[in-house]
Amino acid sequence: MPGAINYWPLLGVAVVVVGFTLRRNPVLVVVTAGLVSGLCAGMPLPDLLALLGRTFVENRVLLLFLLTLPVIGLLEHFGLRERARSWISSFRGLTLARFQITYLGLRQLLSMAGLIDIAGHAQTVRPLIAPMSESAAEGGRGTLTDSQRDRVRASAAAVENVGRFFGEDVFVAFGAVLLIQGFYARNGIVLEPLAISLWALPTAIAAFLIHSVRVRLLQRRIDREMRSIGKDGAADASR
């Protein structure tokens, strides 16, 4: 289309926004969005199907982590998560904040060293970090409520994400840095990868500080809730 821009493919974006807001099944929303966007761009259906199929196959690497499921599943069946909890509770004085902030810092350092896929939600957070966080949050003071447990688990996933994202750009050989460098190089601006990656440090430090404060706030809230429930619980127990 010379001159005029075809705005109709944007309908695909609208499908995504509306579908996610209405909490329709995400897979169906995304497939529909792809079909809408492609058909609105005037792509014939056979070409569109071929494009869908080819990109789908090209991205199959994203599911390679399925190979870890038999290991993790087997270990979980034999009590890996229970062991992770009881092992952490043997450390007196280890709080939720200390545990998760340590993991955050460690995760950022690992990412900075280029060890981006060394940890992940399936292979580390679910079997180890989440149950350890729960145990550290309980701190031998009884069990968490469902709502507290869900917040602690969500926080474990968040710590993994923040640590991974805001460490990786400091690593020179990481894709993002090379993407930035490549973009400029194609436009005639030559930069050293190191010159780019060093500027990711201030944000990495800010991410550590901000998220540490948030983990600490979560711990404070849970402590407060447990103290007020703890009184009721003690009353129940003495009855």
Partner: peptide, 13 residues
């Protein structure tokens, strides 16, 4: 995987 596929469609359109 399906989202990466959508990214491909968005790029192509």
């Amino acid at each position: 995987m399906i989202l990466a596929t959508l990214g491909g469609v968005f790029a192509a359109t």
